[in-house]
Every structure is written in structure tokens, then in C-alpha cells.
Nucleic acid binder design. Structure first.
Lengths: 123, 123
DNA sequence: TACCTAATTAGATATCCATCAAGTCAATGA
DNA sequence: TCATTGACTTGATGGATATCTAATTAGGTA
């Protein structure tokens, strides 16, 4: 099995959501499943955390790598990481003393697709 | 001037934000300018409204086309449209009795790019 | 003018959420 | 066993927000 032939996995419960919203109207169910993910991205600290994790060497980052550079307390960082984790944008794993977070690229890719504007739409 | 050669315009104040967040960490300023747009998308009614507008025949929709199919009052729809408009995801124009909303594709495209996962990132 | 419809604004309210201090849990090492 | 460090949970609080009803603005028409 060659990995590069495998397409992006769809996060659970999102099977029918991988469609550009400019193509056809989202139905109520799709909108209610997608909105919480965008809401999770709707905080500047969470956006930066996600970007730090996703762009970090090796595709993962230790919490200890994330707390610097923010003007909020450690519990607040922890809270935001929990929000990202519960919505499925990141996963976490404890290894010894440290906890590592990894971005869920399939979830990002799905949201990117929803917002994408295919060439020639509504021209 | 041939229109198809013109790339997507960048919404004002977002010039340096059209970068995938998996490429490098967003700085605080970028995150603070991007987050409100995602927050605006973080409500299922607004997501559906945007999708209805963006996918509508001609790329625009009258408010009167938008109020059906929602379980909320007209002022609530109006409130959500205002949020989308103030963040720059849609524009509006009155024509006679009716007000028409149009999706700002460049804004959608920018957000899609921010969430996109370019091939080969962190492999 | 008076009236009707479309859409928004104003004001009130209930709920949600970001934040912090304090406390707790987990792993490591003296 | 105790102390230390990393990370999270709990509980409280102030501010934001989604929603409604009522009132208002704007355009069209008799």
C-alpha cells in the first residue's frame, strides 16, 4: 500500500460535509455538524495553537512548546487545547512527563474544502 | 482586461494572512485578524445563510429567499446577515423593495487557503 | 396622504464562553 | 516517601452573543 494514493480520511460524522458550500446549500444537519469546528477556529489563541502544532517539526508539539508567547495562563491554554481536541482538530498523547499534540490534517482539509471556491462557480 | 487572469483579491487588512496555517505558525496579529471570520462561520444558521447566498442562482440572493426554512424570527436572520456583512463575507445592496446579498468569494478563498494542507507537509 | 410589505434597529434576557486562582493528577527523581 | 515539575480540572466571574418582541425605516401603490 502506497500512502500517497490514500485520500484524506473524513472525520467521523462528517461524511456528507466534504462539499464546497458555494456548490449547493448546506442542509441544517451539515451546518450543525460543521459550525462547531469553525467556532473552535474562531478564537485567536486557538488558531495560533493549531498553527503552532500543525507547523511544528514532526507534525506534533509538546504543550511545553506551546505555552510561551501567550499572554494567558497555563489553564487557559489547556482549556483551548481541550476545545481543539474535543472537536477533532488535534489529538493528544502523553509520553512520560509530557503531552504531545498533533494536528488532524483530514479535519483541516475537510473545512478547507467546504470553504473552497471551485473555478467557474457562479460566473 | 481579461477577468480570468485576475487572481482572488485579498480582503482589506488580510494581506499577509493568505498562508496555510500548517506552513508556519500564525503570529498574533494574523490570528486576531483571521479568528473573527471563523467565528462568524461558527454558527449553523450563518453557515447555511452563506451557503444559500453563495450557491444561489446568479451569485446573489434576496433576503426574502433566505427567511424560509429557518426556525428563527426575521430579526434573527437579519442579525446573522449583519454579522456576515460586517466581517466581509457577504455584501448587500438594496434594489427597490428588496435587499440582495452576495458572497465575497475572495474572503472565502482566503479562509480556505489558511486551512488548506499542501501536499507533502510534515511527511 | 394613507397603507402595505420588506428589512432592519432597539432593547431586554437567558445562555454561553474566555479567563483566572486554587486545587488535583501524573511522572520523575532525590 | 517526599518533593518537583508538567498538565489538567474545578469553580467562579465578567463579558459576549443568540434570540425574541416591539418599534422603525424604506419603498411601492392606491
Amino acid at each position: 500500500m502506497s500512502k500517497q494514493l490514500v485520500g484524506p480520511l473524513t472525520p467521523v460524522g462528517m461524511d456528507d460535509c466534504r462539499v464546497p458550500l458555494v456548490n449547493e446549500p448546506l442542509n441544517a444537519g451539515q451546518a450543525e455538524r460543521l459550525a462547531p469546528s469553525f467556532k473552535a477556529l474562531g478564537d485567536p489563541i486557538r488558531l495560533r495553537l493549531l498553527s503552532l502544532i500543525a507547523s511544528h517539526q514532526g507534525g506534533e508539539a509538546c504543550v511545553c512548546d506551546l505555552t510561551d508567547g501567550f499572554d494567558v495562563s497555563a489553564p487557559t491554554i489547556s482549556h483551548h487545547l481541550k476545545v481543539l481536541r474535543e472537536i477533532g482538530l488535534v489529538t493528544s498523547e502523553r509520553r512520560g512527563t509530557w503531552v504531545y499534540y498533533r494536528a488532524e490534517q483530514s479535519a483541516l482539509d475537510l473545512l478547507s474544502t467546504v470553504l473552497s471556491v471551485p473555478q467557474g462557480v457562479n460566473v
